[in-house]
């Protein structure tokens, strides 16, 4: 089970004065159950890339294979693909529309052709997965806080039983606690349901804390692809393209310059704490 992108390119407004190549020859393999982060400045091609993964956008050239099948084949069922690769857009709470939360979450599976009963069972399990207390389920989605609304929107996608969940900046505009709650929830989905997670984020601290693999986009190409540690070791190149490493990565660098022997690099607060304590213990 995997998604393979083979030399995917995408050109906006092809053959006009506004032609922009948003993706350039992207080749990528995404394995089952991975937790992947995608970073890149505005306009680097992140959003264009993720919209290719469920066939919402069609590559100008190149191929995409989902579990070994070419999704651009004449007889490939792309409608089914959209259920398998669930996309949670930015500010997904703007897409809530039903009168109750429960009805809103039922909409996806109903639309896929499931019976009312099956849809309700799926909605039930999805709302459970995002940790929304049951006494909220029959209220209007508009009575919820920002973080709660966002969880309902994620549940709406989960109810379609996706194998891959793609989230475009799911924490934008949330308070720090709300940010951690959403990310913890997403990490739990990956662990417990073995869903592949692709997280687009502007927060270097968040990706360092949560993902196993980090992809850096720049001008439509993949600049780096590796573990957060491998990627953030290139912090100078990252700065050149308008990104940065987490603050603690710089701190470790500064400390070794000032003669405090911290061994290795850190991308999370916990790692930094351990390295500093080790250095002081050895003194």
């Amino acid at each position: 089970m995997s998604i393979i992108l083979d030399k995917v390119s995408y050109v906006y407004s092809e053959k006009t004065a506004y032609e922009i190549q948003a993706l350039k020859n992207i080749s990528l393999k995404i394995q089952d159950g991975e937790f992947i982060g995608i970073i890149g400045h505005t306009g680097s091609g992140k959003s264009t890339l993720i919209q290719h993964l469920n066939g919402l956008m069609r590559a100008s050239s190149g191929g995409i294979y989902y579990n070994g099948q070419d999704i651009y084949d004449e007889d490939y069922n792309r409608k089914e693909l959209r259920g398998k690769v669930g996309l949670v857009f930015q500010y997904p709470e703007h897409q809530l529309f039903e009168t109750t939360i429960f009805a809103d979450v039922c909409f996806g599976p109903k639309n896929q052709g499931f019976s009312r009963k099956e849809s309700e069972l799926k909605a039930f399990s999805a709302l459970r997965s995002v940790g929304l207390p049951e006494d909220y389920w029959y209220r209007s989605p508009f009575e919820l806080s920002g973080g709660q609304k966002r969880r309902v929107a994620i549940a709406g996608v989960l109810a379609m039983d996706p194998e891959v969940l793609v989230l475009d900046e799911p924490t934008a505009g949330l308070d720090p606690k709300g940010r951690n709650e959403i990310l913890d929830q997403v990490a739990r989905l990956q662990r417990e349901r073995n869903i592949t997670i692709i997280l687009v984020s502007h927060s270097m601290e968040d990706v360092a804390n949560y993902v196993d693999r980090l992809i850096v986009m720049n001008q439509g190409s993949i600049l780096f692809d590796g573990t957060p540690k491998e990627v953030f070791a290139h912090y100078q190149e990252l700065e050149a393209v308008g990104l940065a490493a987490p603050q603690v990565t710089y701190l470790m660098h500064d400390l070794s310059q000032y003669g405090i022997p911290v061994c290795g690099m850190a991308t999370t607060m916990e790692e930094a704490k351990q390295l500093i304590l080790q250095a002081f213990a050895k003194k």
Partner: peptide
Amino acid sequence: RLDVPQITLLAHELHEAGLPIPDGILTRQ
């Protein structure tokens, strides 16, 4: 439901772990 800057939090944690770092560190420097 709030947080502190990552560097401030690290200073706080190091303080808890026994290093006598002053309170209210804000920047990396």
